[in-house]
Nucleic acid binder design. Sequence first.
DNA 1: TGTACATCAGTGAACGCGCGTTCACTGATGTAC
DNA 2: TGTACATCAGTGAACGCGCGTTCACTGATGTAC
Lengths: 197, 197
Amino acid sequence: MSPKHQGTDETVARILTEALRVHAERGHEGFTMKAVIAATGMSSGSLYHHFGSFDGLAAALYARCMADLLDTLLDALDGITDAQEGVEAATRAYLSFTRERSDAARFIHTSAYAAFLPEHAAVIAELKTPRIAKLVAWMVPHVAGGRVARLSPVMMEMLLIGPVAETARRWLSDPSAVDLDEATAVLPPRIWASLQP
Amino acid sequence: MSPKHQGTDETVARILTEALRVHAERGHEGFTMKAVIAATGMSSGSLYHHFGSFDGLAAALYARCMADLLDTLLDALDGITDAQEGVEAATRAYLSFTRERSDAARFIHTSAYAAFLPEHAAVIAELKTPRIAKLVAWMVPHVAGGRVARLSPVMMEMLLIGPVAETARRWLSDPSAVDLDEATAVLPPRIWASLQP
DNA sequence: TGTACATCAGTGAACGCGCGTTCACTGATGTAC
DNA sequence: TGTACATCAGTGAACGCGCGTTCACTGATGTAC
């Protein structure tokens, strides 16, 4: 619709990619506007032009990481019709995302508590809501068919991602504290068990 | 051993109590040395005298909150010999701690990612380790007796506290997003199911 | 086609602010002899 | 008992630093007529 100069989206994507690297390399304390400016080689004015504020940049990055994670779960469910197989595939996908995209996983878990400004929260919801809806839609027939307990979506989510999210958090803060291979083997069937009618 | 002036421990406790209130009222962003100084009415020098640094104060507060949480779980297990009854009591205790001591719960969950300086981490471990050991000790005979699956302590912890910790986090960031009463009814038996041999 | 104007990505020096921290100090209490 | 000294809780003005943010600007590209 509105005319976009060539390279705008690419610039935004490049800034976010560099910002994620800064966060991974320098930690949450070292994740500052100054550090992102230094890493991208861009000017502060340019970052403000694209994101409005540092909070806006962080929210955009969070939205992108969260969308990546949810897409990973959706990909894992793609084509799977068996309820148990799907639940176990999704939980394994969560753990493998944690390992393989640990930068994104770290940013998600670190920022989950940082309340973004309302306007930025809306941008996040815009990316998040449709993906969550797809996940719920996958589950619906299995609940209707009596293969999964009839729980509220929130309780379902707590039981499904609680153990793997906690495992991810623990591993991200200390990789020696928990073995991801062990978690991948142990957790999925037990999470499935917790969802039985 | 070393002579202590009257009131020292009381002063430290009072500072920590006020610091927790500051964190609850002003949020993580507003949790600053300046704000704690204003809330306690003490001087910055006095806070440095007792805690060495702001990181030291935060670590001491985290240690106290975590000890309170673990003591709550231990109290819930006190006198219970049945495995299922104990597991369900502990998970319910976690949720009721979240509701009733929400300031402490919020500080725990917010700080869990903030890596404290090594020296302060040691102080935390000193309070935490013996309590974790007691929890593990409670579980041992039930594993030996075949009533609970023979899992590594970490996996056991992920399955046990994963769903309730995730519920707590969600509720703390948005109380309307999850119903703690529902969680108290729904989660305990399902967590128990996930621990079956 | 040429000219004038609008749009927008990107620049970078400068800003004020609030942060954690320092340090020379006071005064009350405990200890030695 | 009295005197001298040590210890330690607590004071508060002052510090430097790095933060997010601002703003007047440049220059390339798109649009109108």
